[in-house]
Design a protein around this nucleic acid. Structure first.
Lengths: 271, 271
DNA sequence: ACTACATTCACGTTGCGTCATAGTGC
DNA sequence: GGCACTATGACGCAACGTGAATGTAG
């Protein structure tokens, strides 16, 4: 029989944690003096601590360990836990690897004093949403306004209720970069159902995961932002998955000052 | 100017966290109404949230992010943080990999219903310590008792003070397994300084990192335990680093019942 | 009247370290 | 009687989610 201090030294587990294990029922001392409350551990509890510690090193939570021990190391349950943990770890590995790749990428840009350093790319998702959409070929990018005008014209009388949050996006359906005759689609998320008009289709948009960077400034910068995000996606090990789009947070409709425009440039990605 | 709800939706950061960021000085709303206390964010704070989110995805703590932002993204400091984080992640990768390897190893043993499943191996360290040691060639392992007898004989009159914790270990200096004429060393940690005797040397033992498993039972099981630990070390990707040793927690000196013996079998490892 | 906002207080999570205060054992 | 040990209880960390209570602006 060992008092907690001795047992702590032999097992190399702190007194604090032994008491904690006792409290949570993970490892109860084989005897407790009813008068003093002193915990007494028997030597054959050392292997049990070893078991707990071994499972802890595999990254199991104390809770998991408790369940495993209480089940008496039942093979099916154990196998299940091991597999689950394996899957968790595999996911962690991927994340860590991506972070490492991105860090390396950032350090390179930093060393080269690359101005695209100022685009801060993150990965986000949009849920399924309902939107008024207009898709057309337009002569060039600076005529995007036409789409919005058309949309407003044809739906102005319908009393559209904006979704909350309301995103105004433009999707670039041409895979590659084109100077003119571009295939673009304006989308504005709305609440409720409406009938289509001549050019405006109301439709559900599928959820999407994408890499994006928000920037403030005139639209001439969009090209640079695009390049920065594309490089980020490559570096992070994601894969492109669909046409790029922009989200307009502050656009010509809100302000006349191009320096005040706030745009989020987005590239759908997989994995 | 956006109220917190709108800003939260655009930035995809919860209201709770925006208030939290404000509280910790990470992102202060550009205006706060002095009467109502309403937080008002400007659209050009969206890129800043993007920056925060991007850094968060790299795994930086909010604290780190605060420092980085407050330094105005100063390149030297930034480079420093990035590198530090890289190193952390590299360490994490190694750990994760080892855990994955071990999980695979355990699942295999589990599938094969391997009895060595019951040895729970963990990695530990011993600090530098001071010990009375006797090293000798003995005819066979079951004569280990001779060493302890010698040690007790020669030091009995010196009033040795046991170290706290006191470890009784036996080191097996033969690299490979030998049936007879084995080179073993008994060590008992003590406090204070003593003069050497004919067979007993008092010396500092260097710190050591090792893989170990504690088991309860007769010494015939030690071979099995050895095999189990050796396999574990291989699977985990560690490397052997020095002669194996045992720590005797409950030995013939404490009990006559071989089933009550508690022994910790240890293999020093690197990395 | 209802929604969105404000504030403060608080608890739960996870695995501990640490400290305070008081009783026990030799 | 003093020192080493034990007990219990509580706070702190990190990064939030979640709630409750209560008050105000539009």
């Amino acid at each position: 029989m060992l008092k907690i201090g001795k047992f702590s030294k032999l097992s190399r587990v702190s007194i604090r944690m032994l008491r904690y294990y006792d409290e949570m029922g993970l490892l109860t001392p084989s005897t407790i003096d009813p008068y003093t409350g002193y915990r007494f551990y028997s030597e054959d509890q050392l292997p049990i601590v070893g078991q707990i510690t071994a499972l802890k090193e595999l990254g199991f939570s104390l809770n998991d360990i408790g369940q495993i021990l209480k089940s008496g190391m039942e093979p099916d349950l154990l196998e299940n836990r091991l597999r689950t943990r394996q899957e968790e770890l595999a996911a962690l590995m991927e994340q860590t690897q991506r972070q490492l790749r991105l860090l390396e990428f950032l350090r390179q840009r930093l060393r080269k004093d690359d101005p695209t350093m100022n685009y801060h790319v993150t990965c986000k998702t949009l849920p399924e949403r309902y939107a008024a959409t207009v898709r057309m070929h337009i002569p060039s990018y600076d005529r995007e306004g036409d789409l919005w005008q058309l949309l407003t014209q044809e739906t102005g009388h319908m009393g559209l209720v904006e979704a909350d949050p309301c995103y105004c996006t433009v999707v670039y359906h041409d895979g590659e970069f084109k100077e003119n005759d571009v295939d673009v689609e304006a989308q504005k998320t709305v609440r409720g159902q409406y009938p289509d008009t001549e050019h405006v289709r109301f439709r559900k948009l599928p959820p999407v995961t994408f890499a994006s960077a928000i920037f403030q400034g005139p639209y001439e910068q969009i090209t640079e932002a695009n390049a920065a995000i594309a490089a980020w996606v490559q570096a992070s090990g994601y894969e492109f998955d669909g046409p790029a789009f922009n989200i307009y947070h502050v656009s010509p409709r809100e302000t006349d000052d191009p320096n005040a425009f706030v745009t989020e440039v987005c590239y759908p990605v997989k994995r």
